[in-house]
Amino acid sequence: MSLPPLHGVVPILVTPFHEDGRIDEESLANLVEFNIRAGVHGLGVALGSEIFKFTEAERAQVTKCVIKAANKRVPIVINTGAAGTDLAVAYSKAAEAAGADMLMVIPPSFMPVSPDEIFDYYVALDRAVNIPIILQDVPQAPISPGLALRIADACKTVRYIKVETLPVTGKVAAMSSLAGDRLTIFGGAGGSYFIEEMRRGALGTMPFCSQPADFVAVWDAFQKGDEVTARRHFDQTIMAINRLGAQSGDIFYALHKRFLKRRGIIRTAVVRGPTMAIDPISDREIEELLSLSVPQAQSFQMLA
């Protein structure tokens, strides 16, 4: 099967911060390198990167840093969705000018909008840029299979959709059935349903960036038709971390950042506020999981 330009494992990068809250560009570049060496098929900057907590200057800073560190070795996806059409267009133009390969765009979600308004929003973006757009279907701003197909048929740049509306597996199946020959489907939600999504027509996932080699191993095994190995590896290396990360609030930020800090990839596990306080039991569970999951001998450890 011929795969589209973007497929496979496309992790969403966390944003490393210094203790004082400034963006740690060296850690971010190190994180990009860590993922590329693991064999990922692309990288993204999106909601999992805490972009909704960035200033305009920081959005440009992170985009520039990631694109420079990747150095065209893998496609870079930048999330440019916004509450207003003009703002989303501005973000999208800026990302394209900075060298992004693709955009991922969530529909407006601050105020309720109709399917026709969502359609017009994507048409405006399609007219403003020349690089591929990934639709982002999320619970707070769902995109039905019918609307996704309507948008794709009207917009030359819309070629992908990331499906995250629950139940994810059912939504992936419905999207694949109606729009699978027009849109490449990606799973999201941390990659928790990666195997189930691939069985139903997804050609990739966008998980967190703390376990890239494990996700690539699952992808490789599945592509070879070895679903037993794919399932075994997923359950042994990924499931427990995703399960804990989905436990409550935004605990997943702290979990994945601690994982990366423990491995020496980033300097701190700082999460920008507001962020949920981690209770003592959850804190102990995170540490127990990290002690079992993080290898003792590190083959990639560049930061002190």
Rank of each mutant, 00 (worst) to 15 (best):
K93D: 10
K171A: 15
R232Q: 10
S114P: 05
D235V: 05
L260M: 03
A221T: 01
L3G: 13
P280K: 11
E33Y: 11
T85F: 12
I241L: 13
A60T: 13
A148I: 11
G146A: 07
T237R: 12
V62F: 06
K53I: 10
N71L: 11
G188K: 01
W219A: 08
Q247S: 13
Q136M: 12
V172L: 15
A69S: 15
F222I: 08
G170R: 03
I78H: 14
K72G: 10
G190N: 03
Q140F: 15
T157G: 06
R258C: 04
D120E: 15
A97K: 12
I12L: 13
L13S: 01
V294F: 06
F259M: 12
T275K: 04
A269G: 10
D226V: 02
P145L: 04
T237P: 09
I143D: 03
R284S: 10
P5G: 03
Q223P: 11
V89K: 05
M104E: 05
V218R: 03
E96Q: 14
R262K: 14
A202W: 04
I151N: 02
S248G: 09
R150C: 05
A98W: 01
D220L: 04
I265P: 07
G190S: 07
A83R: 08
D86M: 12
I238T: 06
A213G: 01
C209V: 00
V45N: 03
A277M: 14
L47H: 08
P115I: 04
L135P: 11
I278Y: 04
G225Y: 06
S49I: 08
G245A: 09
M302W: 13
S144D: 09
V105Q: 01
T15G: 01
F110R: 08
P142R: 07
K171I: 15
E96I: 01
G187N: 07
A189H: 02
D181W: 04
K72Q: 12
I76D: 04
T157W: 07
D250I: 11
E19T: 15
S299Q: 11
V228L: 11
A254R: 02
S176L: 10
A152T: 14
I161F: 01
A29C: 15
Q298P: 06
I185Y: 02
D116S: 09
T169Y: 13
R73T: 13
D279M: 08
G48N: 10
F17Q: 02
S177W: 06
A90R: 00
V113A: 10
K68W: 04
I238G: 04
P4Y: 05
F194V: 02
D120K: 15
T184P: 09
A202M: 00
G180H: 02
A230R: 09
V113C: 05
M1R: 07
A94R: 09
A90G: 02
F54Q: 06
I265C: 01
D116E: 11
I133N: 05
I133D: 05
R200I: 00
G84I: 07
D126T: 12
R199A: 03
M276D: 14
D250C: 13
S293P: 06
V89M: 13
I134E: 08
D181E: 08
L28Y: 07
H256C: 00
V9L: 07
D120V: 12
F222Q: 09
T237W: 10
C209R: 00
H18F: 15
I251S: 02
I78M: 14
G249V: 11
V66G: 08
G187C: 06
S144T: 00
I118D: 00
G225C: 01
S49M: 04
E227H: 08
L147V: 10
Y160L: 02
N35P: 15
G81Q: 05
K171Y: 15
